[in-house]
Computed example of a mutant assay.
Amino acid sequence: MDTELARTFLTVISSGSFISAADRLHVSQSTVSTRIHVLEDQLGCVLFVRNKAGTTLTSAGRQFQRHAATLVRTIEQARHDIGIPEGFSGTLVIGGRIGLWEEFLLEWLQLMREARPEISVRAESGLEPELMQGLIEGRIDIGVMYTPQSRPGLKLEQLFEERLVMVSTAARSKPEPQPGYVYVDWGPEFYARHNACFPNFGGPSLTANVGWLGLQHVLANGGSGYFPERIVRPHLEARQLHPVGNAPEFSMPAYVAYPLDGDRDLFGIALEIMHRVANARAKAKADRRPRSARGKRASPVEGG
């Protein structure tokens, strides 16, 4: 079977529709439809039910998903095995949002290397759609992100809650978006809560889909925005940034996603270290919270 057909099938699952899959694969919707029809002809069954809401797997589709993922993962595993650096016994591919690589995953990386020095680690960054696709195809072993989607064959575990706070280069700023405000796209839940808290906000002059990019712009050019408190803390202590008093705060969970059939030994130690780092940071955050609490809290931004 052509692995391209299996990859297209898995892309439809991860993206939720033929249209989104076509955008992600950089092909036309008709190409995606043709590939799925060819695949269905080869298998002699219908894999998807298409409706206005997108696509839904049939029972045959759910059964084939496991085989498609195994097929693609086998090819990727062969590439991993062939590409294992000399002196190492295996490779682990970790994908995460850029903001989660700052501090959290970097700390995990060092501890993982100390615990399993015989394992070569490949670190990648990306947004949620890319990370989910990599997990489903088997190109990524473990993904760490804010808004994962529940998919068959994958397990999600919450690591910690990110605290998003409004900060500004101005020492005194009103508790709502001002000129120079940078809107960071932290996901649909954040968008909904942001709109509810700032109903009169007309829209930003700059939107960034990566928090690091928005933060660098604010530091270089002035302005304000919502960023994880753990990332901006050094800038607050250095007085490069200032907390915006009485501005709402948002809570955004961070998750780890991994395949249920992953290597228990290797995945087990990697996940154990992640939870250990997350728990240690949560404890440190709780110890600081009474002294640094500022602003008023808004409803949490729940990750899917």
Rank of each mutant, 00 (worst) to 15 (best):
G211D: 02
R233Y: 11
S224D: 06
R230D: 05
A208F: 13
H217T: 12
N221F: 15
Q240N: 12
G211Y: 00
L236F: 06
A208D: 14
V218D: 05
H235K: 07
L215K: 05
E237C: 09
V232Y: 12
H242R: 05
G223Q: 11
A238C: 02
G222N: 07
S224N: 04
G214A: 03
N221W: 15
G223A: 07
A238N: 08
Y226I: 09
I231C: 07
G214T: 06
G225A: 00
E229Y: 10
R233I: 02
G223F: 12
G211S: 08
L236V: 10
A220I: 08
G222K: 07
E229P: 10
P228L: 03
Y226E: 10
A220S: 14
E229V: 07
P228R: 01
F227R: 01
L215R: 07
A220L: 12
L215N: 06
L241Q: 00
N221D: 11
V232Q: 11
A220Q: 14
I231H: 10
W212F: 15
P228N: 06
G225L: 00
N209Y: 15
G222W: 12
H217G: 06
Q240I: 07
H242D: 04
G211C: 01
A238K: 06
L215A: 03
P234N: 02
A208H: 14
R230Y: 03
L219T: 01
S224C: 09
N209V: 15
V218S: 07
A238R: 09
E237N: 11
G211R: 00
V218Y: 06
A208W: 10
W212M: 14
L215I: 03
L236Q: 08
R233T: 10
S224W: 05
P234R: 02
R233L: 06
Q216F: 07
Q240W: 06
R230W: 01
N209R: 14
N221S: 14
G214V: 04
N221I: 08
A220N: 12
H235P: 03
E237H: 10
R230S: 03
R233S: 11
V210Q: 14
H235V: 01
H235D: 02
P228Y: 03
H235A: 05
R233G: 04
R233P: 09
L236N: 10
E229F: 09
G211I: 00
R239M: 01
E237R: 12
R239E: 07
V210K: 13
L236M: 07
A208P: 14
A238E: 09
R230A: 02
G211T: 01
H242C: 05
H217N: 13
A238M: 05
I231T: 13
Y226H: 11
E229H: 12
A238P: 06
H217K: 13
R233C: 03
H235Y: 13
A238G: 05
L241K: 01
G223M: 05
L213K: 11
H242A: 08
E237G: 04
G214H: 08
A208T: 15
L213T: 13
L213E: 13
L219E: 01
Q216L: 10
P228F: 01
R239D: 01
I231V: 12
L241R: 00
N209C: 14
V232S: 11
L215E: 06
R239V: 01
G222T: 09
Q240C: 08
P234Y: 03
L213C: 03
L219P: 09
F227E: 04
A208L: 13
P228V: 02
V232I: 12
